[in-house]
Design a protein around this nucleic acid. Sequence first.
DNA 1: GAGTGGTCTAGACCACAAT
DNA 2: TTGTGGTCTAGACCACTCG
Lengths: 244, 244
Amino acid sequence: MNQMLRKPGGAEPLYQSVKRFIVDRIRSGDWPVDHRVPSETELTRDFGVSRMTVHRALRELSGEGLLTRVQGVGTFVAAGKAQSSPLEIRNIAEEIRARGHTHTSDVRLLRQEPAKGRAARHLGLPDGAPVFHSLMLHRENGIPVQLEERYVNPAVAPDYLDQDFSRVTPNEYLMQAVSPDQVEHLIEAVAPNAATRRLLKIDAREPCLLLERRTWARGAVVTWARLTHPGSRYRLGETFAHRP
Amino acid sequence: MNQMLRKPGGAEPLYQSVKRFIVDRIRSGDWPVDHRVPSETELTRDFGVSRMTVHRALRELSGEGLLTRVQGVGTFVAAGKAQSSPLEIRNIAEEIRARGHTHTSDVRLLRQEPAKGRAARHLGLPDGAPVFHSLMLHRENGIPVQLEERYVNPAVAPDYLDQDFSRVTPNEYLMQAVSPDQVEHLIEAVAPNAATRRLLKIDAREPCLLLERRTWARGAVVTWARLTHPGSRYRLGETFAHRP
DNA sequence: GAGTGGTCTAGACCACAAT
DNA sequence: TTGTGGTCTAGACCACTCG
């Protein structure tokens, strides 16, 4: 029966089971973008639940941006360009997983070096003071979506260099290690330089969305991050309240 | 009957009517923060609809952050009311004047036309329905900084075409004419097309920051605006305190 | 025990799109 | 005409909180 679909733990609503089943198919790659999802009638039969229950699952996934529904036509896996809110401090890995996709990342650089120029000024440190510097490349389903260059104040996060950033993103680590009390964001459209183009695998004509973020904790700058995204693969968004 | 609660236009789902009723009570101040909302049973009786319908309305309002629901206790008007947004609806003219600079603008287009493609979809209107379409160029100290292309729902702002937009920006007019209750923003980096390059006086290599904004009032889309800025002359920025 | 919200069913009618 | 999603009903059982 449909009990087989329930989570082992037991107490999960049926519509959650249906949602989980669909998200798993998308996450695993079984259902690519634009793939047609079984109709409500089919899912009703397959899961042995009522149509209202299936409908709720599909409606919620549609509201979460994972599916697109067209009356009279069907339900499809949403194309969904990457989209996030600049308001909060977003976690790129979580954001990607929330879309049902796979997040992977490479550590391209992780070291201590003398602060110079803008990095020193943004961190509020004297020129030549030691800083931590990291460069990460984040991918969504294998496609580069964010280049994360980050400078970290060693006084605030002394263990930064010892982390395994293949398991926990720098963002995740810093958020739990030193919860910041102030944030600054700047958003710009920029032309990528040669190194950025190579890492993001884009050509010179593609503009990039640059999000710069600084965070503070108890008056000291924690980190200055430059997050560069290919314009064709990422955008920032936010909705206040719901659109009906 | 519950027909009295329906919108004059007719076709509104019942759960929408219930939502609208509650939102109106909150917005008007009748129901302050922490006010207890009538139970599902009471609303079912008052509206003459089934409990499932009432439940959906309350569940969605809860998801949108307007209500808080506690099983076994009741439903209450949520506190909070979002932190100030970095992407509040900005008024380009005011923003420029706040920097001590001079704002000028040209009306390049202002007319009614049949909605097509994206404009129709974004406004939630059928293809070919009449819409208002305007194109404005905004300058800071004589230098173009924003190209504002805007589509407006005639049903919501019927007098749009009669305004003098050399004195009041479309944004200012719409904000005071129909105060929106919902906003959506999207930010992208894009390459400008030929017409945009010519109007903004930039060359093909310069990326542009595109801010798309939709606003709603009482469930209907008011306007969809595409604000294009030269990457070298404009950026979005924001500082705020983080909630611990 | 009474009242609340959370979930679920088995039907129904409708609007819409494709054939 | 067929199949799709959108809405709605009138019940039902459950978990939970409170007096």
